[in-house]
């Protein structure tokens, strides 16, 4: 029973995506820290992360998703660079920051609920 929650596809994926969201928060924080650094290019999650994850899920390869590396890349095409070579837009980063935080909250809530269900099953009463 415990295995069926701990090894269920959604739970494993939620954990992976929580990691990705925490990492993405670090990247956005880096962008906002360097909003005035000349020549700095914005960083973000590598665009192939979600594609790889998607294809692994379709194949049903859960172990593969566990080992999938979460990498970052320099986003050089993020939009017009300023004359000093910096291509960070403050509003865009703040928007992404909030979106990412919401995603993180959702995933944390989901993980929490999965564990709650397990608790309900163990104790036999709804907490």
């Amino acid at each position: 029973m415990i295995d069926s929650v701990m090894a269920s596809e959604n739970y494993v994926l939620a954990k992976k995506l929580l990691d990705a969201a925490a990492f993405r928060h670090e990247l956005i924080a880096t962008n906002l820290a360097n909003v005035e650094t000349p020549g700095f290019k914005r960083v973000d999650l590598a665009p192939d992360f979600s594609q790889k994850l998607g294809s692994l899920v379709q194949k049903g390869d859960l172990d593969g998703t566990r080992d999938l590396a979460i990498q970052h890349h320099e986003d050089t095409h993020a939009g017009p660079a300023r004359p000093d070579g910096n291509n960070i837009e403050l509003d865009r980063e703040l928007l992404e920051l909030n979106r990412n935080a919401l995603e993180y909250e959702f995933l944390a809530e989901y993980t929490s609920n999965s564990l709650q269900r397990l608790k309900t099953a163990i104790t036999g009463r709804v907490i």
Partner: peptide
């Protein structure tokens, strides 16, 4: 998580 990150200013 993905290698070298955390570029401060």
């Amino acid at each position: 998580l993905g290698g070298a990150t955390g570029q401060g200013v």
